[in-house]
Design a protein around this nucleic acid. Structure first.
Lengths: 183, 183
DNA sequence: ACTTACATGTAAACCGTTACATGATTCC
DNA sequence: GGAATCATGTAACGGTTTACATGTAAGT
């Protein structure tokens, strides 16, 4: 009967911080958990319905002008369910990194093409770092400590990855005798 | 007509290094690309069939004793397809980290429970580091340079993550006045 | 008038894992 | 004889994304 997907707990967690519409949950996810846990409308709206049927959230119609709007709140049962989930050890850790995959097979192309793969990876990571940094400045005054810690993990991790790419670019350029990405 | 999934390129890449059966490809993937790109039998066998129909690989029956066995080789077309893919910029970078997700919502539980989440995350990362290190020693003599670089990225990345967990455990323990995970 | 953002939802397609099914061979 | 490993494959299931569909409101 029970047993919800992790996405259900994303919703419960967001509602624990205060009542929100499905639309607002999606926006929040995109600006916070997105880099380590994403969710689409196609998951959020049906899941809200299921959670509502299970009594873990309650929705109320709160239209803005003539525009309909359903705002959800977490219930006492919902909070218990969220806490029970938080107490279980985390299980899922998955990565899909097409850049590393291409690099893994880079023997099939020229060194300067391998270099290009790493260059694109570095640029992606630089952009990701900047994005998370900007996010951190927006939410600087927010009281919640844990989201800030998690955000910092993201920033540090992308910084490490950027640095690794930079070092690798140097090495590949040296080996291949290519004038590399240095100024 | 064409357009293959990244998993198809994993297969092409593995076959570029030499002929293999589906079973061998799966074993190789589990011991190399798995931490940033996984593949199951349910993907590999059907994909081999599709690649064969497209003429990018050719299979030949090479039984071992009375046990049937199909070994695949990459074709010239297959090599071109692999190289064309390697020249396209990598697109997919995804992460699903239930540990970070739980930590993000840890305000809903006690600090010592937040600490417990991070402790489990650290243990997972320590184990992952050890696993990759062991893998590196097995393949120490392998000539291929790129897989080694990628493996080192994995090791460094898990080491960074382990270190981050350790630092965070210290901070949470301090704030909460809990006797932490120090010896 | 037009575009962007707010707001909700569904259906189809896609992707991937797990479990199942089968059977031979090798090692203990 | 029994367990582990080699070897191939399919079916069912579950989860996710994308596209579609609809309409209001606010800003330019």
């Amino acid at each position: 009967m029970d047993s919800f997907s992790p996405t259900a707990y994303v919703i419960l967690g967001m509602l624990f911080k205060g009542p929100k519409s499905g639309y607002e949950i999606k926006a929040l996810v995109d600006n916070s958990t997105r880099f380590f846990w994403a969710a689409s409308y196609g998951q959020i709206y049906p899941e809200l319905k299921r959670l509502s049927e299970a009594g873990l959230v309650v929705g109320s119609e709160e239209p803005t002008g003539g525009r309909r709007r359903t705002v959800y709140e977490i219930t006492a049962d919902g909070e218990l369910e969220l806490q029970a989930w938080l107490r279980l050890p985390p299980e899922t850790f998955e990565m899909r990194d097409e850049g590393l995959l291409k690099l893994f097979f880079a023997e099939a192309v020229e060194p300067r093409e391998a270099l290009e793969i790493v260059r694109v990876m570095r640029e992606y990571n630089e952009a990701a770092t900047a994005r998370l940094r900007a996010l951190g400045e927006t939410k600087a005054k927010s009281a919640d400590a844990y989201p800030k810690l998690v955000l910092h993990a993201g920033i540090e991790s992308f910084e490490w990855y950027t640095d690794w790419c930079r070092r690798l670019e140097g090495e590949i350029a040296k080996r291949a005798g290519v004038k590399g990405a240095d100024a």
